[in-house]
Structure formats: C-alpha cells, structure tokens
Design a protein around this nucleic acid. Structure first.
Length: 625
RNA sequence: GCCGACGUAGCUCAGCUGGUAGAGCACUUCACUCGUAAUGAAGGGGUCCCCGGUUCGAGUCCGGGCGUCGGCUCCA
C-alpha cells in the first residue's frame, strides 16, 4: 500500500504498516524522534495501522510549538503523574487526566487530603521516572475485560468510565502503571524535557457539583527547558497586564472588604466609564433607542412573575421593609416589562427600544468574584426591544451590527456563540425552533462566524453571546443578545395589531458591552493600560522645566482645555517627571522651558518619540485620535 | 458554595524553631531649579485582617469568621 507524504511524494509500505513503520521507512532518525501522526487534521497514535492512500504527517520532537505535538507530550506526562501519585499515596483513586491548552491535569481521590507542598514531592518522583525512562505500550481489550481489571484494582472512577466508553477500549501502560486511554501517546518519555506541577484545585467528578469533589493537580510540560522558561516569562508578562494590578497602578479603581465584589471607581477610572457611557448614548440615539429609568427595588411578586425568583432567588439581595420583601434588581427586564405594560400599545409604535444603563446587584458566590470581571455590583448597558414577530430578524441584525461596530472601535475581536434551548426552558419546542432560527438567520445575514453552544440558552429564550479572553486566557462573556418569547406573556403584555386583535410582543434583551465593569476590565488588559488618546484618562501633560516656566506652562495647559490636560509642576527633575508620565501611560507630554513657545513645542509621545510641533499642529494631530 | 494557598506601613514584600516589627517605593520637610524613564538628606507612618484559645509571653501555634488569589461549580 501507499501513503502520501506532506511534499506529495508517495511512500510504499507493506500492508498493515503503522505510523512508526512509515517513519522507519523514511529514516531511523525520524523514527526515533517521531511522537505523533497527523492524518487529515486528525491525530493518530504511531502504533496504529495506516490505510492505503492516506496523506500523513509525522510530528517529531522538533515540532515544539505544534499544539498536537504538545498535547501528546502533556497527555503522556499526565500518565507519568498518575504513576507517581499512585506510588507515593497508596489507596489513591485515579479519575481522568487530559491535556489542556497550556498543560495537563489529572484528577485523584486521595485517602487523605494533600497540600500544595506535596507537589514538590510528586514532582521529584516524576523526575525520577523521567530519569529511569518510560516506554508506552498500547493494547486493546474488550469492555468486559477492562471492567474486570478496574474492579480488581478497585478503581471505581475507571469502572464508571469503561461503562460509558465505546469499544474497542485501549489501555496504555508505562512502568507499573496502566491507564484506560484513547491515546495517542509518545513512544517513550525521552522527549519530555521540562515538567512543572503548577497548582492544586478541587474539581467535581464529571464536572457535576452533586458528585464527589476530587483533587486536581495541574501541570505543564515541554519539549525543551527553554520553552518552559518562555512559558513562565509569558505568565509573568500577563501578570503585568492584569487589570487588577493596572487598576491600582493607574489609579483607576479598587475593591475593599467593606463591599466585596463592588468596585470603588477613582476619578481616572470614571473617565473610562463616562467615555463608554457617552459612546453608548451617542450610538443609541443614532440607532433609534430611547432612554428610560426604572426602579432598583421590586416586590418579590414581580420576581415570581418574571420567573427569576424560582431560578435565582439565592442570588437575589432581598430587603425587608415593614410587611413587604423587596428584591434588589439583578437585571432590568421586569422594570421594562412593567413600563411597556403601563400603556395601551399599537403595532404602529413597534419596535420600541428601551435603553437603560443601570446598576444591578447579584449575590454571586464568594469564590467566583474576580476583580472587575466578576462582580456583585454590575452595570449593564441594557436595552429591551419590544417588537412583532416579523420584526425580529431585522432587530437582531441591528443588534449584531451595533455590537460589531463597538468591538471594532476598540480593535477587539470577540467570539460569537449561539446558545440554544436549555433543559429547564420555558415554552414549547415549536416556539424555540422559531426563535433559534431567527437568531441563526440574522447571524448568517451579517456574515458572522459563530460557535454553537447547545443547551446553554437562557430559560426564556436562545441567545447570542460575545466572548473575550483575559490575559490568563480565561474566556468571559461580554455582550449578549437574547430573544425572549416568554416574559412578555408572563407579564400579560400586548399590543393592538393591524387586525384589531391583541398580540403578545417578542422582546430582545441586549447588552453590548455586557457589563461596564467587565468591559473596562478587559479593555485595561487589551491595551495593557496604554489607552488610545480618546480614552486616556489624562491625554496630555505639560511639564515646566524650571520654576520660571510655570506661568507659561499653566497658560499652555489652559489652551489645551478642550482635552484632558494636566500639569506636573512638582519640584522634581524633568527626568523624574517624564518617568512618572510614562508609568502613568500618558499619550503626550509637553516639556516647556526657555526654548519653547506656541510656535515650537517639545512634544514627547508615550514610549519616547520626540518631535517639535507648533500648538496648532499638535491640536490638529490629536483632533484625529 | 467546594478544594488549595495567602492576608505584616498607602504599594510591593522580608520577618528562622513563640521573646513585642523591618526594607524599597510612596508620603512630609529641607536643600537643589533642574531639558526627556528615578537629585540628595532628614522625618513621620503599623489594631501584623477580625474574634476566641494555648502560653509567663502570639505577627509567629490552634479553632472559628471575613477577604483576596489559583481552580471547580454557577453565571438571568
């Protein structure tokens, strides 16, 4: 038989030859360095047979950056971890251990809880295995045989996995350790040149909080020591961009124990906030939204009507007053429903687009709070569009267009996800067929690539979410566009149609920044604190050289008054004040001394680029930013 | 909420096996009046997260709580 190599040449092989055989046929060196086979974009263990006519690519220890090559290395390292843990902690039960984006993990049930300090011990054992060397052997067994083996070994998690696994079931063995595994794996442990166990965490068996919580050990591994160093350097760099760190450094916001999950916004942070608000107001006006304001407190009956009481009452802040209980609003929809329902509505008014940027409170679990990215005090740039069935697609399209405009303005590339009906949905499947279809059509019409996220919709309707990634590669939901065919009915909302009959409107819930807090958090990391001119809290700084230049510098600052300009006339050296301006990431610094005048200003841009401009030229330049 | 770690000056952090707290930066004052990333000197500043316990004595050990961080779960 023949296989096709990446350069399109053909390689003749005996029937039943494996990937490793192919590597050997090409050369002994390649066979030694081979770690994985890639076939049509899929990975395959080197030990498995090839098929006639297949195009193949052999990945080796030199493909140190290839995600597939790294995954196989890390997957094998996870097995070494399990072997080490088993030897060190008799009685431990093993669960699963896959490779992930930047490393791998393995879940265990320890007889006694272990601590972070134990990782050192385990890592040493892992190193010992690497020094000894390990080879992986693959075998295929029947489900019954696999089940019997794990029952014998008293590995209940593996037994459970076998029960849901498809035949043929494969085992990989290295050293004393055999694991149920689909593979692929390395031939041997020689390519594993750098390993580091990074952290310890609890993780529920099969990701379900009703199951037992296991102990997860995270680690990472590389084909070269220098790659691990580079990885650690990248993490350090990410920490420097962390919005929580920059928030303090740039004096934007802080959080404190007095109100967990509720940021205190400093004057410079408020400049960012208000700039986003201005942008929102301007665009809302241009796009036919009207601004409203609805109460923060509603009696619990309102939350029962909306359906939120049943699903989210644990996350609602409840305030008792006299005989009544009020819930602090966690979202604006009921307020906007009540507002719509306050008048008789005609089809001629639709669509009605109510916008409100409002403070919301959600009593999020303590363990989930995270800087600006997950807060209890959350501000949504919310809007509810009440419309007729035939208007839905255009309105969704309009929201998508609006969202795309906003994110492009910041040079942010959001990922779109379409989330469909969840298990606890309200309403009939036919209705969901229609609403999901409308969202899909609008996405396609706007030419947006999206991922399908099945079963992840809101209980009242499907949604399109925009996601962004933070410096540590964690994905956060930003904007959201949700179609709702339930809540208007629950609130008894109607409008009079052209047919002189009452109809229930549809509602589109949409927040495009999502949460102002989260958006600013991501924005800080996106720009690493070096905001573009139009966003920068301080845009220009005038810096008088000596005491005698203060007067003129103040006058110059006055003439920059249309912009956010300040003055640094501290009794410090010019070098020192330049340094501070750089640390504050101010876009323009103007040094003003004997040599300067309106005709000739010494302008320094963030980063160090210097030029001489007249005041007029400077104003012209910044006007375009 | 769960697993693990951490909480010391405004910030970043040191403080060994228990003996009563320190650095750098920041701040204040003084001198210098300065030309593109840190001028020098002096000074002030601490409920060592909170509550309780052990001890002659607790920042340090133990218990509980709160908060933060890394995960898990959740996320209208």
């Amino acid at each position: 038989m023949k296989v096709v190599l990446p350069d399109n040449s053909e390689l003749e092989l005996p029937e039943g030859a494996t990937g490793l055989d192919a590597a050997r046929a090409i050369g002994p060196k390649l066979a030694e360095q081979a770690v994985l086979l890639r076939v049509n974009g899929h990975v395959q263990d080197l030990r498995l047979p090839l098929r006639d006519g297949q195009p193949i690519q052999i990945l080796t220890t030199r493909d140190t950056d290839d995600p597939d090559a790294l995954a196989v290395l890390r997957h094998s390292t996870a097995h070494l971890l399990a072997e080490a843990v088993r030897r060190l902690y008799p009685g431990v039960k093993i669960a699963i251990g896959p490779p992930i984006d930047n490393g791998f993990y393995y879940d265990f049930e320890f007889p006694e809880p272990i601590q972070e300090a134990d990782l050192e011990l385990i890592e040493a054992e892992l190193q010992r295995e690497l020094e000894e060397g390990r080879e992986w052997r693959r075998e295929e067994v029947s489900a019954a045989e696999a089940r019997r083996r794990f029952l014998d070994e008293d590995e209940p998690y593996k037994v459970e996995l076998v029960e849901s696994a498809e035949e043929p079931i494969s085992f990989y063995t290295q050293g004393e350790f055999t694991d149920l595994c689909r593979g692929p794996h390395l031939q041997d442990s020689k390519p594993i040149k750098a390993v580091k166990l990074t952290s310890l965490a609890g993780a529920y068996w099969r990701g379900d909080e009703h199951n037992k919580q296991l102990t997860r050990i995270y680690g990472t591994a590389f084909y070269a020591e220098s790659d691990l160093d580079a990885h650690l350097a990248r993490l350090e760099d990410a920490r420097r961009r962390d919005h929580r760190r920059l928030g303090r450094q740039l004096d934007l916001f802080h959080v404190q124990e007095a109100s967990p999950g509720s940021p205190f916004w400093h004057p410079k942070g408020m400049v960012l906030w208000n700039t986003l608000e201005d942008l929102r107001r301007r665009e809302n006006l241009a796009r036919g939204y009207v601004e409203v304001k609805t109460p923060l407190l509603y009696d619990v009956e309102t939350w029962k009507t909306s359906g939120h009481w049943e699903k989210f009452k644990d996350d609602l802040f409840v305030i008792e007053s006299g005989e009544k209980s009020y819930g602090l609003k966690p979202m604006n929809c009921p307020g906007h429903m009540l507002l719509f329902g306050n008048d008789l509505r005609s089809y001629r008014e639709l669509p009605i687009r109510y916008a409100e940027s409002s403070t919301l409170h959600r009593d999020e679990l303590a363990g989930t709070l995270h800087g600006l990215l997950r807060v209890r005090h959350v501000t949504q740039d919310d809007a509810h569009i009440f419309c007729a069935r035939e208007q839905i697609e255009d309105e969704i399209f309009g929201c998508l267009d609006y969202a795309t405009y906003l994110y492009e303005l910041f040079g942010m590339e959001a990922r779109f996800e379409l989330s469909t009906r969840p298990d606890d949905k309200l309403g009939a499947d036919e209705e969901w067929d229609f609403t999901e279809g409308a969202l899909r059509t609008a996405l396609e019409r706007r030419g947006i690539d999206y991922e399908l996220n099945e079963g992840d919709g809101a209980f009242y309707g499907p949604k399109i979410d925009l996601h962004m990634t933070d410096v540590l590669d964690r994905s956060w939901q930003m904007g959201t566009i949700q179609l709702d065919a339930q809540m208007p009915g629950r609130f008894g909302l109607t409008y009079m149609g052209a047919d002189n009959a009452e109809h229930t409107p549809y509602v589109i819930h949409r927040a495009l920044f999502g949460s102002l807090e989260r958006f600013i958090g991501i924005l800080i990391e996106h720009y690493a604190g070096a905001f573009p001119f139009w966003l920068a809290p301080v845009q220009l700084r005038v810096l008088p050289v000596g005491e005698g230049h203060r007067e003129a510098a103040r006058a110059l600052r006055e003439r920059l008054g249309g912009h956010r300009a300040d003055l640094d006339e501290r009794d410090e050296t010019v070098g020192r004040r330049i340094r501070d301006a750089e640390l504050e990431k101010i876009p323009y610094v103007i040094v003003y001394g004997d040599k300067e005048s309106d005709e000739s200003l010494a302008v320094r841009k963030r980063g160090g680029e210097q030029s001489t401009l007249s005041l007029e030229e400077l104003l012209q330049e910044v006007a375009t930013l």
